[in-house]
Design a protein around this nucleic acid. Structure first.
Length: 484
RNA sequence: GUUCCCAUCGACUAGCGGUCAGGUCACCACCCUUUCACGGUGGCAGCACGGGUUCGAAUCCCGUUGGGAACGCCA
């Protein structure tokens, strides 16, 4: 049995789309679970679409999420070069061979000429009736015109009759009539191949055993098979993947924001959560398990679990999963992850960010939520005294003032300022006043934060803010409640 | 328009002729609780429609409808 070789072949056009990442992930997992090789190839045959720095984005993203390739432009390998723009002569050579085997032909028609021919063919764009006049040029004449330097393009010569089918590991057998296929361009006038040709040549030459790509290629796959056949090449196994869509049946698009890996990553989603989530978009382990690390996936992933219907990317579930990963972190690791976000909102030097991070861990879903949750620590926000009125806590303007004064008096007496001391002092008051802790502590929490919702309760906030600041904010609250 | 693909709760999915149609997210309720979360318990909710095949269809076939994709000197 030949060794399994899969490839991820992105074009360097900017960002790592989430669907592309998933394709890379599956290709990687299939290689790893089958003891094969995972190859990275850069498809940059469209010189106009090149975006500077995007190859680096590809390298960085793959590395960041842990998809290590065995062969690629940066690390070489026995089938290089792995950048298509550096393989120009290879495609030209095979294009000639394809022509010799009657699988392709030179076309000298200008774009304008063909457009008008299409018009004449009935006004519609159906390829069915379109006949390229160059298709039936004699070989000698074609060669002569080519040699004379006339601008040309190489087109695929699709058989006029019959049908072509191929087997896909997730979609089954797909058949199309050859009459619906067009004689597409294989080699452009700049001498570089189109994807339609390059992918076939490279996949064959690089001995790719399983071609893994999005289902948008499903309908053109028969054309590729015709090329394989014309060249008498072995046809690889095909694994087409269902598309990932945005809600309302729209394809996930970079234009609409948040569709690239780095967008999510920069928003504070963990790479492990992103990988885990997108893996489940189109694949299932055949049991109820949902949490998988990449290492675990390397063991359990299987083509049999691949799904064939499009999936909608659900940010809410990603958020849930991200929260799961955050809660599983050790406090130390979470602190390190949260630190940059904490520092966005907190500039005071006297705040124990480690303690604050401990408060935050259980309540954080996405790291980017952090700044807005803690910015009251630096500066007490302006707030209305109506906030002291809380039905559930049974607080009103009157008892709030009273409790705040009690807190002030009790806390002032405290010698040390640690959580246990503060809590004991305050709970002693709860006890002696005979009220619910919620009722007694809510006014304090409001006074300390100016917020309805806070990370941690009153005693924890008091500890973090420090004695002086705590008393200052209580005083501020008392003043607010005293004024009419 | 033509061709191809898809169709189970709002979302991701399990199911591959006989199941009370299962799980997860979201949502709702209750419990826990110094707010919010976390955690716990319970609940709501689905086989797009119409024909077949069969003793029996979510499962097989056909059609309809709906959704997606491809039809570039883009990949």
């Amino acid at each position: 049995m030949t060794t399994v070789r899969t490839r991820f072949a992105p074009s360097p056009t900017g960002y790592m789309h989430i669907g592309n990442l998933r394709t890379a992930l599956y290709a990687y997992l299939i290689a790893r679970t089958m003891n094969g090789k995972f190859i990275l190839r850069i498809e940059d045959t469209d010189q106009e679409r090149l975006v500077e720095g995007s190859v680096e984005v590809i390298y960085n993203t793959l590395k960041l999420v842990g998809l290590e390739h065995d062969e690629g432009p940066d690390i070489g390998g026995p089938f290089g070069p792995y950048v298509q723009s550096q393989r120009k002569s290879i495609y030209q050579e095979w294009a000639e061979k394809l022509i010799a085997r009657d699988g392709g032909y030179y076309c000298f028609c200008s774009k304008e000429k063909l457009d008008s021919l299409r018009q004449e063919a009935g006004g519609n764009i159906t390829a069915v009736k379109f006949q390229d006049p160059c298709r039936d040029l004699g070989p000698e004449e074609a060669k002569k015109r080519a040699a004379s330097g006339e601008p040309l393009v190489v087109r695929q010569k699709i058989p006029r009759g019959g049908s072509t089918s191929f087997d896909d590991l997730v979609y089954g057998t797909v058949t199309v009539e050859n009459s619906t296929l067009e004689d597409g361009i294989l080699l452009k006038s700049d001498g570089l191949p189109t994807y339609n040709f390059a992918n076939v040549v490279d996949d064959h030459l690089m001995q790719i055993s399983h071609v893994i790509r999005g289902s948008e290629y499903l309908s053109s796959a028969p054309k590729y098979n015709l090329i394989y056949q014309a060249l008498e090449w072995e046809i690889p196994a095909y694994i087409h993947l269902p598309l990932i869509m945005k809600a309302a049946g729209k394809k996930l698009s970079k234009r609409e924001g948040d569709a690239s890996f780095e967008d999510f990553y920069n928003q504070g989603y963990l790479k492990e959560a992103i990988v885990n989530y997108i893996t489940l978009l189109g694949w299932n382990p055949k049991d109820d398990r949902e949490m998988f690390s990449l290492d675990e996936l390397k063991k359990v992933f299987s083509v049999a679990g691949l799904n064939n219907s499009p999936a909608i990317f659900d940010v809410e579930k990603l958020q849930w999963m991200n929260g799961e990963y955050i809660r599983k972190m050790t406090p130390e690791i979470f602190y390190e992850a949260a630190l940059p976000w904490l520092q966005k909102a907190i500039h005071r030097a006297d705040i124990d960010l480690r303690k604050l991070s401990g408060l935050l861990q259980q309540r954080t879903v996405v790291l980017s939520d952090i700044p807005a949750r803690v910015d009251f620590i630096d500066v007490l926000p302006e707030y209305s005294k109506d906030m002291f009125v809380n039905k559930k806590a049974k607080t009103d303007l009157v008892n709030s003032l009273e409790y705040l004064k009690t807190c002030q008096a009790e806390l002032e007496k405290l010698g040390s300022w640690d959580h246990e001391t503060i809590k004991q002092a305050l709970y002693a008051m709860v006890e002696s006043l005979g009220v619910k802790a919620n009722t007694f502590l809510t006014p304090l929490r409001i006074a300390l934060s100016g917020r309805e919702v806070t990370p941690g309760g009153a005693t924890e906030l008091a500890e973090i803010l420090g004695k002086a600041e705590t008393l200052q904010r209580i005083k501020n609250g008392i003043t607010k409640l005293t004024q009419l």
